[in-house]
């Protein structure tokens, strides 16, 4: 489990690295955008070689676990918490968890709600663990819109969804460490909307959404966002987003939420298939 944390903190998944390299090709030579992407690429290489955090904000520690019926989730949590403490001592994670009431950072990264666990039972015998480290800068620019939205002239339809999503891209510029990736949920309630939006960030960047309407919307938003001239870090340029991933959930008639989780370029996500004894059998990304 410590190895999963190390790898997630220090090594960007291949699909994300490939997207960054292709955006580097695409930027105009000699511009700030190109120089910025070169620094990003160099940073990815150094972090991997030195086994050190890609970004010093090692973020919220989010575990997503697909587990067989009967797996002891409490035991899993205990092991994972121990691994978080160990990974923090080794410097793979920053001392990054603060008691909100007292302001005390005890340096362990373990406390109320930290790390976060999302368990999902499956009929398979396999345990799949995915880990996302989500930095605070990008988490802060996430947004949830309730439609209709008068100011943005966004109605309760897919056109309305696109308007609010692009507004979120405009508002996030410069602040969320772009080029970024959007995980989006249309529908759900305020809590599940954000939760499902983060689930979208478990998808690989080069996958195709099985729902044709959503696949088309992902492409349309990606193309439009990359014409806005925001660019890496908001310095200007062609690469504003590296990916858009949209899911949807049923809603009650009275609500229509669009929940957007923004992920920075330092998109730290890895996962592994575990044996019943807990050793890593294969990597997922």
């Amino acid at each position: 489990m410590v190895e999963l944390i190390r790898r997630t903190s220090a090594e960007l998944p291949d699909d994300v690295h490939r997207a960054i390299l292709s955006s580097l090709e695409n930027e105009r030579k000699g511009e700030i955008a190109e120089a910025t992407l070169k620094i990003i690429d160099k940073n990815i290489a150094i972090a991997k070689n030195k086994s050190q955090p890609i970004c010093q904000d090692t973020g919220s520690v989010l575990f997503y676990v697909d587990c067989p019926v009967g797996m002891d989730q409490i035991a899993f949590e205990e092991v994972a918490k121990g691994a978080v403490i160990e990974a923090t001592k080794k410097g793979y994670l920053r001392q990054n968890s603060v008691d909100t009431l007292t302001g005390v950072n005890d340096g362990t990264n373990v406390g109320r709600g930290a790390p976060a666990f999302h368990f999902h039972q499956t009929r398979s015998n396999e345990i799949q663990v995915r880990l996302v480290l989500k930095g605070g800068g990008c988490e802060n620019v996430g947004a949830q819109y309730a439609l209709p939205n008068t100011k943005l002239k966004a109605n309760r339809d897919l056109e309305g969804c696109k308007k609010v999503i692009l507004d979120a891209v405009i508002q996030a510029q410069g602040k969320g460490c772009g080029p970024g990736v959007l995980g989006i949920c249309i529908g759900g309630d305020r809590a599940t909307g954000y939760e499902y939006s983060k689930h979208q960030l478990l998808r690989k960047l080069d996958d195709t959404n099985p729902v044709p309407e959503l696949a088309a919307m992902e492409k349309e938003i990606m193309d439009k966002a990359n014409t806005l001239g925001i660019g890496p870090m908001g310095f200007g340029g062609k690469t504003t987003l590296l990916g858009v991933k949209i899911g949807c959930a049923n809603r009650v008639p009275a609500s229509y939420f669009v929940s957007i989780s923004y992920m920075c370029w330092a998109y730290r996500r890895h996962g592994a298939v575990l044996s019943p004894e807990g050793s890593i059998e294969s990597w997922l990304y």
Binding site: N43, I46, C55, Q56, R94, C264
Partner: peptide
């Protein structure tokens, strides 16, 4: 404006971590 997230490239530019102040009050970060 430094490049956000480029923690390694920027850490390599730090030749020396020559002091720390108010560590007890505020914690490391």
């Amino acid at each position: 404006h430094a490049v956000g997230g480029a923690a390694q490239v920027l850490a390599e530019c730090i030749e020396e971590t020559s002091g720390v102040y108010m560590m007890e009050e505020f914690g490391s970060p």
